[in-house]
C-alpha cells in the first residue's frame, strides 16, 4: 500500500481534521503515515488542503504533488488539483458544492452531495466526514475496527456528542451510492 491523498476545500470545512483522522486510523493499523497541512492565511477562510500519505514502507517526501486520491470540497480546489491527479487515480467531489463534472477521463470520479447529506442527517458541518466515509469505503483505506479508536484520538472524550456525530457522518458517507 502506498496511497498519496490530497484533501482540499475551504478553511473551516474540517479539511485538516479529516486528514488527521485518516492518519490516526492508519497509524493504529501499523501503517507508515504522514500529514502535511497547507498553512498560513488560507486557514482563515481561504483554501485549505492537506497531504496525507499512507504506506507500508517508510515515507520519503510528505508532500503530495501527484495525488492517487483527490478529495475536493470546493470548486477552486478541483480546478487547481484535477490536472495533478495521477492517471488511474480517483477524484471525490462534494457535488453539493461543486456543480461541474471532472473533465479528466483517465481517473475515476465519484460525486457525493456530502454537504447536503450532512444537513439532511442533522450533521451540519460534518460534510468532511461524510466525504471521508465514502473515500474510506471505496478505497479500503482503514480497518473498520480502527475507526472508533481513531476518532477517540481526534475528538476529546468530553465531547461525546461530537464523537458520535462524526462516526455517524462516516457511516452516512460509506452508505452512499451515487
Amino acid at each position: 500500500m502506498h496511497e498519496r491523498i490530497l484533501i482540499a476545500g475551504f478553511g473551516g470545512q474540517g479539511i485538516l481534521f479529516a486528514g488527521k483522522f485518516l492518519v490516526y486510523a492508519n497509524l493504529l493499523a501499523g501503517k507508515e503515515v504522514s500529514w502535511l497541512p497547507s498553512y498560513g492565511p488560507e486557514m482563515r477562510g481561504g483554501t485549505a488542503n492537506c497531504s496525507v500519505i499512507l504506506s507500508d514502507t517508510p515515507i520519503g517526501s510528505p508532500i503530495v504533488d501527484i495525488p492517487d486520491i483527490l478529495v475536493v470540497m470546493n470548486l477552486p480546489s478541483l480546478d487547481k488539483f484535477e490536472g495533478a491527479t495521477a492517471p488511474g487515480g480517483r477524484i471525490f467531489v462534494d457535488s453539493a458544492l461543486i456543480t461541474r463534472r471532472v473533465a479528466r477521463a483517465d481517473v475515476t470520479s465519484v460525486y457525493i452531495p456530502a454537504t447536503q447529506l450532512a444537513d439532511a442527517n442533522g450533521l451540519s458541518g460534518l460534510a468532511n466526514m461524510v466525504m471521508l466515509g465514502k473515500v474510506i469505503a471505496d478505497c479500503g483505506l482503514c480497518r473498520p475496527e480502527d475507526l472508533p479508536a481513531a476518532m477517540g484520538k481526534v475528538v476529546p472524550e468530553r465531547k461525546r456528542a461530537l464523537f458520535d456525530k462524526n462516526i455517524q457522518a462516516l457511516q452516512v458517507g460509506a452508505a452512499f451510492f451515487g
Binding site: K20, V23, L27, E32, V33, S34, W35, L36, P37, Y39, I59, P62, I63
Partner: peptide, 10 residues
C-alpha cells in the same frame, strides 16, 4: 523548515 514544523508523523 516549515514542512517539518507543520507536518505530523508518528
Amino acid at each position: 523548515d516549515g514542512i517539518l514544523g507543520q507536518m505530523m508523523e508518528p
